[in-house]
Design a protein around this nucleic acid. Sequence first.
DNA 1: TTAGGGTTAG
Length: 795
Amino acid sequence: MGALCHYHHHNHTIFLSSINNTPSIHHRRSKKPNTAFPHSHNHSRASSSSSSLSPLTKALLHAVSSGSMQHALSLFDKMPHSNTFHWNLLIRGYTDNAFFLSALNLYLTMRFQGVPTDHFTYPFVLKSCAALLNFREGEKVHGTLFKLGFAEDLYVCNALIAMYAKFGHIASALRVFDEMPLPDLVSWNSLVGAYLMVQQYFTSLRLFSQMLQTGIRPNKFSLINALEACSLCSYQLWGKEVHCYALKLGFESDIMIQTSLLDMYSKCRLLSYAERIFDSISSRNIVAWNAMISAYALNGQPIRAFDSLERMLKDDKLAVDNVTLINLLPSCAQLGAVLQGKAIHGLAIRKGFLPHLVLETALLDMYGEFGILKLAEVIFDQMVDKNLITWNAMIAAYVQNGWYRKALKLFEELLSGYLKPDTVTIASILPAFANLASLRECRQIHGYIMKLQFHLNTFVSNSIMYMYASCGDLVTACRIFNEMACRDIISWNTIIMAYAIHGMGRRSIELFSEMKRRGIQPNDSTFVSLLSSCSNSGLVNEGWAYYNSMKLDYGIEPKIEHYGCMLDLIGRTGNLDQALSFIEEMALLPTACIWGSLLNASRNKGNIEIAELAAERILSIKHDNTGCYILLSNMYAEVGRWEKVEQIKSIMKKKGLEKTQPCSTVETNFRLHRFTNKERSHAESEMVYEVLDIISRKMGHSKCILSATKFKPSELASKTANSPENHSVRLAICFGLISTRLGEPVLVRKNTRICEDCHVAAKKISQITKREIIVGDPKVFHHFRDGHCSCGDYW
DNA sequence: TTAGGGTTAG
């Protein structure tokens, strides 16, 4: 391990410069309790040595120390002259045995009866308030002890810091610390711990460093705190520095320090360092094994996590505890090992580990990742004890599986309860807004987020940006990006994706260049954004260039998403042979998405043979893919193969699949207007049809202009009851034209992809009316301006 | 008689 020590010469050294061997300062009680206060008269007696204690007092002391509170209470009741010392003893007994409410009540009785309290009383009372999370009472006790003159006592102050830390009231904890005459090691450790608890890792590290500078020699708890802070910042260099310091102080073979180091290296993504620490532990206990199992999951080595489990059971003959199981679950999720996951669930039940808040939340999360939402819901509903993390996990499970409505419902339920959402809640729920909400609702949640000050969090800002972009408001998405104080790689990937969704590939490329200029290293997601942008905008050559550069210049191996983008790009060129050979040469097994991309390409080219092939492959993977049936059916209809159309219709009927009812929406200031095909129930329907009629006439003989469809036998008109002239999107566009301000774009959102006729019509309408028309479908936003569309007529 | 402790869920 000595090899790690060279790091203290590094520029980033923050701690070691202040490390020396000065002995710790001895802190003495700074000030005697206020003896002028009337209640303190028999204080000195209370502190006398045990040799001069009465037999009854000695018995009470013994009872409390051995934890028999019943006995202690009966002795206390027998006392003719109980004093402060006796009361303190009893309060201590209750606190030590976790009867916090009894401890607090006893203190209140003490005060009520006029028994004087002293500086020994308060640490116990404060600890009880903290344990009960009783903020109100804790503050009251603080007020009382302040008035009584105990607020400068070292032990009382330390207990106050710990209590406020537990409440998450960092400002109060800091104030107590700042007003202390001479904070000691415990005070510093408590404050550092307090900042850890409120997740302010950098501040806690800064405090740790300040502590070193004042010459206080840290103990192992200081180092454990510092290591946790380093791991949560994922800052390897500082972690290594603390490691050196631990060696210097002789904590090399302290198992708690070793476990903390292991965990720090694991969270800093230095798995081999973590393994070396683990190997150096002479006698491994369950905590060390659990930490190692967690390390493997965290670093994407789930198989090794299970190997460790086996070694732990066999070599060290240790039994699993609930933490072991909690740590194994993410490995199951990574492997998609449903059976093993369920086996662990069963084991947890047999071992009597359930109910257990953390274990249940971890199970819920795993089932969510498996996509087995029914089981996740069962766990959630049956949990007796839930916290915010549990709620967030359930919301995330819904969102990740596309159950947005359920997610929104749960989110609303959360808001109406006593728990308050945090940044994780918000970042988890925003994709549901992005998918389902109107712009007005997006603005509402945005306002709410600003009120909570969560918009300052990069993670949240990224989600807000994406939400606006997917709801059609690219302008606001950009403004948020520009106003962000702290952009990470995800911010850049998101803004590039935002332009991709809106078919503005050139702008995506500019942003990619700017990102590189600023020294930000692109990752694999950056290329997903960039390649989809090239594909959506028809930048074929650029797309190929980036695809090649990704591998050559950045060493990023293409994932299935990258292949999907490239296939869309190839599809645009209409070269289906190239598309087929691309699929064959892929290093990964094609998914339903890949075949979907080929299906789309063959539809655009009107190649029904390849479409059939693609559809067959899709349905062999996902046999309930409605969109696939519909697309194929439409293609058969276009070439007049009605027997095939009927056949698909009957298959769908047999499988219980229903065609999604196409609908388009437009928002005015106050509400969302929804149109289906041939809609006549809208209040303004008459006006809408009048506008549609005027525009159709302006477009000229609509029939011939709009007949851009490649195959359109005359019989089609009679077979399709649903003529494109009455498609929802046109009604929505017309309503948008009359209900929004001139100069503003008309924004229409659609739940299915726009048909070719409507696409031609929308281009024409944009030209005739000189208005920008934006039509968003589940995949892209078409920006129609002056008779052209941003998608380059391929979607 | 008086303070804090390693692994654990989003």
